[in-house]
Amino acid sequence: MDFSANHIGFVLASYAISVLMIGGLIIQVLRRDRKLRAEATRLEAQRKAQHP
């Protein structure tokens, strides 16, 4: 890739926004999954303890 080419800023901006959006999506999805599964496991364990 020629970094001195015309309009290279548009190419770099396209890749930057793609990395940011996809990276943000991956982080958000993984964090939500981890949080909800931990909460579900905790509540299930609590419920089993209350109603053995």
């Binding site: 999805v29 993984l30 909800l36 579900a40 419920r47």
Partner: peptide, 26 residues
């Protein structure tokens, strides 16, 4: 990437519904 994210999101949503069911039962 979509397949991976979709599988993780479905797993999270199943957990969210389980939490909701537990709260309703309580």
């Amino acid at each position: 990437l979509f397949l991976a994210l979709h599988l993780v999101s479905i797993r999270a949503e199943v957990a969210a519904r389980k939490i909701r069911q537990i709260h309703i039962a309580e």
